[in-house]
Nucleic acid binder design. Structure first.
Lengths: 113, 113
DNA sequence: TCGATTGTTTGATGATTGTCGAACCAAAAC
DNA sequence: GTTTTGGTTCGACAATCATCAAACAATCGA
């Protein structure tokens, strides 16, 4: 039986998302860490509490909001968990190479960053 | 005879610039407009007052600072003008595809952006 | 039904960012 | 030498952003 009032998330049409919004979302270290963790092993779906972020639950929730609103991740609820994954295909189509840049940067990041 | 104390600008080694800094710099509409104007006709060098930005001189100076510090543009003085151009080659090498994304976005920008 | 878990929302705080006018500096034009 | 022009710096302000504690909501487990 479907849940009564379970959370549903709205996801923008990526064609409606400006590049600046995606860049703004990916300019924050915490959000980049989220995306990289999701993209490990080719891409997977993870729940909010499966990240090693050392931040409050409110902050993490906030960051997932921003990534969702920028069209970078897709989120669905399963029981009391919310599961998110990167919208790889659509993202690549809308912003070719952006995700690759972000993933490549992990290896290239200067020590002081 | 070389000028006494003419402005000289320092430019970061692009290998020292994190992707997040470049993205942050390019997430602002004014700075993106600057980059696009510089890149029109394949790339050119322009002075600060050759942009149609409708902002105060202090604000424009501020935006050029950020682009320079993010390693996106190179600036030199010529008389009382400062001339800037996009560091295309180095930028493409360090962040492959980033500039292309920014330039492609102009055509693709949703009406409401 | 109650307790635990996952996640959201609210309101607040501090930091960061974009903006500007005014004052200032350097070079060119007169 | 003075005026004009291009650009920088300073200090201030408003907006935005990242952060959190506390309270709350929905679901699962006992």
């Amino acid at each position: 039986m479907p849940p009564k009032t379970s959370r549903t998330y709205t996801h923008p049409d990526l064609n409606e998302v400006p590049l600046a919004a995606a860049m703004q979302a990916l300019a924050d270290p915490s959000r980049v860490a989220i995306v990289r963790t999701l993209m490990a092993d080719g891409g997977r779906e993870l729940a909010c509490n499966e990240f090693d972020l050392c931040q409050s639950k409110a902050t993490i929730s906030h960051h997932f909001d921003i990534l969702r609103e920028a069209g970078i991740i897709h989120t669905r609820t399963e029981g009391r968990r919310c599961l998110s994954k990167v919208r790889q295909g659509e993202l690549e189509k809308r912003f070719p190479g952006l995700l690759k840049l972000v993933l490549a940067e992990e290896a290239a990041t200067p020590a002081k960053a």
